[in-house]
């Protein structure tokens, strides 16, 4: 049973697409975290991906890297993000997904991380520098806390890997839409719809598209061949500018995506 999967399936059951915004915790100060999360929740997002800053974010492009640097300069750590989240956990109605590099979890202690994260309303974890083969280092602790470990599937993953990753991913499957790092892009490879169809043949776990999705059109286009989208850099940029109109438009697009 997965709270995340249920949340996504209940959205798609209504004919909508799941929308998962990514925010960098501590960008603009940790005291902004509560109001940002609650406002996104109010807009009707499906889940919220909370990024933990790291000194060496090799999977991230310039937008999220800079947001991370701002957060680090503010003194943001995994520890104080979890403390902040726990202070308003009872106001959450959508599941949270933590995105963090592996080393901060190892330094925090994997069991303690899983238990504390659970108490904050974190229902899933994405670790971009930990492929399936290395996941035993944290998976047992997450499983004990009923936290999903979400796998990324990339365009370069071989068919055998795609099958294995898809079957092992919990909550949802994070389908990376480009070769490379996070960040807004204007074009995508043409054969993406085939790629997504192939992924979905292996599982009933919903597939969400992420990396490079930055416009309402992207949201609609990707929505046509998967269960929803994750939007990172565009949300991070918009939050830094306090531009909620752009964010509302992106969320709205997910509610009309299935119409296309």
């Amino acid at each position: 049973m997965s709270l995340l999967k249920d949340a996504i399936l209940s959205v798609t059951a209504q004919g909508h697409k799941a929308f998962v915004p990514y925010i960098m915790a501590g960008d603009g100060g940790l005291d902004k975290l509560q109001s940002t999360i609650l406002k996104l929740q109010q807009l009707g997002v499906t889940a919220i991906e909370v990024g933990i800053p790291f000194t060496d974010p090799v999977a991230d492009g310039p937008t999220i890297e800079r947001a991370g640097e701002r957060a680090l300069a503010n003194g943001t750590t995994l520890r104080n993000v979890l403390e902040t989240l726990s202070s308003f956990a009872d106001e959450l109605t959508v599941p949270l997904v933590a995105m963090t590099y592996l080393n901060p979890i190892l330094a925090y202690g994997t069991e303690k991380f899983a238990q504390d994260a659970k108490a904050c309303g974190i229902r899933g974890v994405i670790i971009p520098d930990m492929p399936l083969e290395e996941s035993e280092i944290v998976h047992p602790a997450l499983k004990d806390a009923s936290i999903d470990l979400i796998q990324l599937v990339s365009l370069t993953s071989t068919p055998e890997r795609i099958e294995r990753l898809t079957k092992r991913s919990e909550g949802f499957i994070y389908a990376v839409t480009v070769n490379g790092i996070t960040g807004a892009r204007s074009s995508f490879a043409l054969e993406l719809d085939e790629h997504f169809k192939k992924i979905q043949t292996y599982t009933d776990t919903p597939v969400l598209a992420g990396f490079g999705i930055s416009t309402p059109d992207h949201v609609k286009n990707f929505g046509a061949f998967c269960s929803g989208v994750i939007v990172g850099s565009k949300i991070v940029d918009s939050l830094a500018l306090n531009d909620w109109t752009t964010i509302e438009d992106l969320v709205k697009a997910s509610k009309t995506a299935a119409m296309k």
Binding site: V58, P128, D129, Q151, S154, S157
Partner: peptide
């Protein structure tokens, strides 16, 4: 040791 890298690199490795 090990292979703590993004999924995109796994096939290349």
């Amino acid at each position: 040791g090990g292979q703590f890298v993004p999924e995109t690199l796994m096939t290349a490795l």
